[in-house]
Design a protein around this nucleic acid. Structure first.
Lengths: 318, 318
DNA sequence: TCGCCTATCGGGTAAATGCTCACATCAGGC
DNA sequence: GCCTGATGTGAGCATTTACCCGATAGGCGA
């Protein structure tokens, strides 16, 4: 039936194979016949469709245990909103578990008709969220990055969360044109003195909704791994009680931002504790529990998307 | 089907197994270990999760060939909206193919903030649509059935599309409290003279959006199979040129409603040709091509959700 | 033009999956 | 008390899938 098509692209073919497999329930053998390719190619197309995120799978059932955890999180931390995904077992990846729930949460805001300014952080969890979301037309909103988009080594691949979302929803987006962390406080101040930067900062500070990842500050902190902070500086901040960071801003176990280390040179805007607007953390994983707990305590975040084991650990702590 | 016997723990377990399998990518063996059950049970839970629609799969890529068909359908029939799903191959089931697309279409309307009156037909395609849709809170809308909900044999299982949707979106719904087809025109008129019926009819006639299946009127017409029309009457209507029906109202190959047969005794409201509001047909299958074509010609429907082979057949015909 | 390098292909195979069947359990009726 | 049908369970087995590997073709620089 697709014999008349001039040249279906690889993506088209993969999408079709995935469709036949997951929706149609055909075997890969049947797909191979249908598409006129070998079994092996059909198998590759199917797995490619999945790997490239052409196929979206969602769970349409709220598991009781997760609902209970959500209610308890809301109660214990006074949250406006909590979503708990089922865990993926011992070897499971927290980000993978929460990505669909985070995407649903983002989509919820995107589908609101009134124009919103949506402030966004970065990180693996945010990236997972983007990959899991579907395309929606929502040009009424504005997407603003809370964090600088200039990395020390110039690589920007890590910071395209805002761009990728904007791409999927066809909404205007505002990257923060400053270094994530400048070499000196002076340079950081110089950047922030620029008119265009101030405009983006003002927009970010007025964000109606904030979605951020939460980073931990132990010895394998992402800030260290990605080269934003030196070992010595990490030691200094740890000594001062650092347990986590949101949008690059480091805080202690009570969720108070520190006045030292990289916090003196971090670009972009910090999420103010105790906002009345939604400020939702997207984070899961045993190592992040102290960081999430601190951010919840001081209400840097007033909403949370996490997974089952992390939720349990947070509640055990309180 | 299992709506009446709620088994929360079983559902939870199935949902969890499906989650681990489809989202987590675990093998059934690992799931069995994780959940502490036998592999066979894990397998059954996974397949149950799929069968009961706990797991939703959607294709997040518009295949080029389908987009082309959509554009061509819109152009050729002056449609406001057309959606074409990839076909499912020779043995494929059209309803299964279009269910996700139809669900997405319905969800699009449901997510609109302004209150809508949504008129709905029945049939396998509509039923598939409901099963494929996710739960959304949309209490601002009203769902009204276009077709009577009293079957000749009293069974109502076929007519709970509106109820099921209302269930999923927690919106008020208005069944049409008349027989689908009354034994005599007089009885039908008597029903329609009742105050409450007139209110529902008025609501249905003012519907902002209409979603209907399209039935065919050949010798294996659903109206005959379900006992709404006798063989003799079907013959009579076929002789008069009947090729299809929408919400029980039979029309000829030009999409003109007939003035004979069951049309004299059909309850509910007929979809007026040439409405300016969206009137979307949900239908696929080779046997329905003449019926769909007729409905499109007279603009009983001005939008269409169908699958690839049906779309091609419709275009070949024009 | 040659030769290398990379991506893809198809065959083969071990692992994973789903299906059927025989049996256990249990509630309800005679 | 015993039958009986419905429902669920585990084992075995055929089918299907995922992955490894050598072969091959096309791109690209020398």
């Amino acid at each position: 039936m697709s014999r008349l098509d001039p040249e279906p692209s690889l993506h088209d073919e993969a999408a079709r194979a995935g469709w036949l497999y997951y929706v149609g329930g055909l075997t890969q053998d049947q797909i191979a016949t249908e598409l006129g390719v070998s079994r092996q190619r059909a198998q590759r197309l199917v797995s490619r469709a999945m790997a490239e995120g052409l196929i979206h799978v969602r769970l349409n059932h709220r598991i009781g245990a997760c609902l209970d955890l959500e209610a308890e999180l809301c109660r214990r931390f006074g949250l406006g909103r909590a979503r708990v995904s089922p865990g993926l077992g011992p070897g499971g990846d927290g980000v993978r578990a929460i990505a669909p729930a985070a995407a649903a949460e983002l989509e919820r805001f995107l589908r609101m008709p009134q124009p919103l300014v949506i402030g966004l952080g970065t990180g693996r969890a945010m990236r997972g969220m983007v990959d899991a979301m579907v395309e929606i037309d929502a040009p009424q909103h504005r997407l603003v990055s809370l964090i600088g988009n200039i990395a020390p080594d110039g690589s920007a691949s890590f910071f395209d969360v805002v761009m990728r979302i904007a791409d999927k929803v066809r909404a205007p987006h505002y990257p923060m044109p400053v270094p994530v962390i400048s070499p000196t406080p002076e340079e950081n101040a110089a950047f922030h003195a620029l008119g265009p930067v101030q405009k983006v900062v003002a927009l970010a500070e007025a964000a109606d909704v904030i979605l951020v990842g939460v980073g931990q500050m132990s010895n394998d902190a992402p800030l260290l791994a990605d080269g934003f902070v030196s070992r010595a500086e990490l030691d200094e901040m740890q000594a001062a009680g650092a347990v986590g960071e949101v949008a690059g801003w480091v805080f202690d176990s009570e969720g108070r931002y520190l006045d030292l280390g990289t916090n003196m040179r971090t670009g972009g805007v910090r999420v103010a504790p105790g906002l009345d607007r939604p400020s939702i953390g997207i984070a899961a994983g045993a190592s992040k529990v102290p960081a999430i707990h601190a951010a919840l305590k001081s209400r840097i975040i007033n909403g949370l998307v996490t997974d089952e084991p992390t939720a349990r650990a947070l509640l055990d702590r309180a």
